[in-house]
Simulated scan of single mutants.
Amino acid sequence: MKNHLSRSAVVHRIDRSRHAAPQVFERLREMILSLELTPGTVLSRTELASRYGLSQTPVRDALMKLGEEGLVDIYPQHATVVSQINVTSALQALFLRRSIELEVVRTLAQQRDVGLLAELRATIEKQAELLDLKNFEQFSLFDQAFHRQMYEAAGVPQLWDLVRRLSGHIDRLRRLHLPVEGKTLAVVRDHTEIVDAIGNGDVDGAQAALRKHLSSTLNQIDQIRASHPNFLADD
């Protein structure tokens, strides 16, 4: 049975000086990736328009863009539903991200930029401060910031935008995995190993640490599926 949007959800002020559809898209996307909107949740265009104080047109446009990313399933004249997490799509997103980031860390290890290393270590420290608080949403934001900093330092920020657009399914898998005992600590440890290898100019070490880091969630796919059987689909 499908869930419906709770009355407390989607409380978000629209900036009237900006286009509405991108704001609705970003907010709904955040809620889907954080699993505040779980797979199977029905998104009513009429209800969303009412909550945002908008016409249905920008809401429709936002939902169509979410559909393009595979985050919702749109059934014309029927309903829009938050999609299940597609494992095949997650694997392809991981393949792309790993391919790009292996070159990113290679570039950074060759540069050995002291300023970047300080920035990355500061981000890791912020993550470490959240370990005992179990603030998974903030932890995830710093995780994204860590990787974005590396892309920007390597001179390929647009590739980060590309990866983010294609990573909705793998991001939701990671969000399911994050509360597992020891996972957040492992992320901090992996990030530290990556930065240490970059600082030492150790290309092989940085790439090995990155491979381990990016693959850890999909290595636990059977356990995640067992814990959330209704959230995952294979294709």
Rank of each mutant, 00 (worst) to 15 (best):
R51V: 02
P76W: 08
I85F: 12
S83P: 03
I224Y: 08
E193F: 04
K65Y: 06
V87D: 04
L130K: 00
E101V: 05
M150D: 01
L71S: 09
G67K: 12
H213P: 07
Q84E: 09
Y75K: 01
P58W: 09
D202W: 13
L120V: 02
H213K: 05
A62F: 13
G115E: 11
L173D: 02
D202C: 14
N219E: 12
R164E: 12
D113V: 01
K183Q: 11
Q149F: 06
D171I: 03
T46G: 09
S140W: 02
N86W: 04
L141P: 00
Q84W: 04
L108M: 03
A79W: 04
Q110Y: 05
A186N: 03
P157R: 12
S216E: 12
D202S: 14
R165Y: 12
S8R: 11
P22S: 10
R164S: 11
R165G: 11
L218S: 03
L37Q: 06
H213R: 03
L43G: 00
L141E: 08
E137Q: 10
H213D: 04
A154C: 09
R106Q: 07
D190R: 00
S215I: 00
S6K: 15
T107N: 06
E36A: 15
L33Q: 13
G53I: 01
M64G: 03
A20C: 11
L133H: 06
V82I: 05
A20Y: 12
D234I: 01
K212N: 09
D61G: 04
H12N: 04
R189Q: 09
I170C: 07
L162P: 03
A118T: 07
L66K: 07
V81L: 11
K183M: 14
D190M: 02
F139M: 01
R27N: 13
E47C: 01
L54E: 06
R7H: 12
Q220E: 15
G70A: 13
A90K: 02
E36L: 15
I100G: 07
A49Q: 02
A208V: 02
S55M: 04
F231A: 11
D171N: 10
S50Q: 13
S50F: 12
Q23P: 12
A197D: 01
E125F: 10
R51S: 07
E69D: 14
L166R: 11
T184R: 14
I32V: 15
S99N: 12
G182H: 10
D161F: 13
L173H: 01
S8D: 10
Q77F: 15
L35M: 15
Q144W: 05
M1N: 05
P157E: 05
A90W: 07
Q56T: 07
Q223D: 10
N219D: 10
G201S: 14
R16W: 14
G53Q: 07
L131V: 02
T88I: 00
G201H: 13
A90C: 08
S34I: 01
Q138N: 08
D161A: 15
D61I: 08
A154I: 01
Q138W: 02
Q84F: 06
F25W: 06
G168C: 13
A153E: 01
R211M: 05
K126P: 00
A9S: 15
